[in-house]
Amino acid sequence: MSHFNKPNYSTGTKKKKGIPAGLYTKCPASGEIVFNKELEDNLMVVPKSGYHFPLGARQRIAALFDPETFVEMDAGLRSADPLKFVDLQAYPDRIKKYEKASGLKEAVIGGVGKIHGIPVAVAVMDFRFCGGTLGSACGEKITRVIEAALAQKIPCVIFSASGGARMQEGIYSLMQMAKTSAALGRLAAARLPYISVLTNPTTGGVSASFATLGDVNLAEPGALIAFAGARVIKETTKQTLPAGFQTAEFLLRKGLIDQIVGRHELRDRLRDLLTALYLKKKPAPAA
């Protein structure tokens, strides 16, 4: 279920915090060389080709909300080790490593803020923390964001970036799919809008729960969106996979997602959609 296929960066030197380190990066789409400073200033989108590198949760939050409106929730919530799981490494050691490398405490950041003045409860996943996998802490934080939307009667937006389930938490990881989906059931019953934004990659248990349950499901360009990994499908079916299989563009063509939205247009798309589904009326233009 989990796929730890890391995004492919071509970097001059070593990787740091999932952001290409060194001075410049080669665009995987066009082959052009981009200065990292330029990339970072452009939300990790290659200016000419439009190629979207993964964006850290903090950077995304900074770019998403109206200035000074975001209030983080449950920042101290982190993973425990309920199964005392040891594979080639002990699970708590892996967690420490990810904390150090990403500067995050969990694979998701949650909170409430405003987008073009519209209040929203938001969860943003970060692939750099344990492949964005869904463990108990991650599931709990996402559920609390959904419940915050419900309590405050505001819309909910979740940005997914995940390899799927957190295997080291076994069945508890699987049950986070049920927990988050049950919370979304309550949100739907309250007729509060939920917009899901699928970013690269959104796979396994995350794609099979909250990520595909939006009233509107948006995806970033080029994002890998899948239930099963391509390798597993190839091995099981012995078939050649269609070109572009499991990309956002493929899903749009098949009618499985609503729109592909580039990072720079996202704030405005969310404004329009939330205005339609939540405010239901265009606000009067500012005098």
Binding site: A178, S181, G185, T236
Partner: peptide, 27 residues
């Protein structure tokens, strides 16, 4: 053993089919 990992399964959005069941069963 699990939902079928196949091309058609993905093309018809097995993720969404499962996800919807989770939400609807809860309600």
């Amino acid at each position: 053993p699990g939902a079928y990992p196949g091309i058609g399964s993905e093309e018809r959005h097995v993720s969404e089919a499962i996800a919807v069941n989770l939400r609807e069963m809860a309600m």
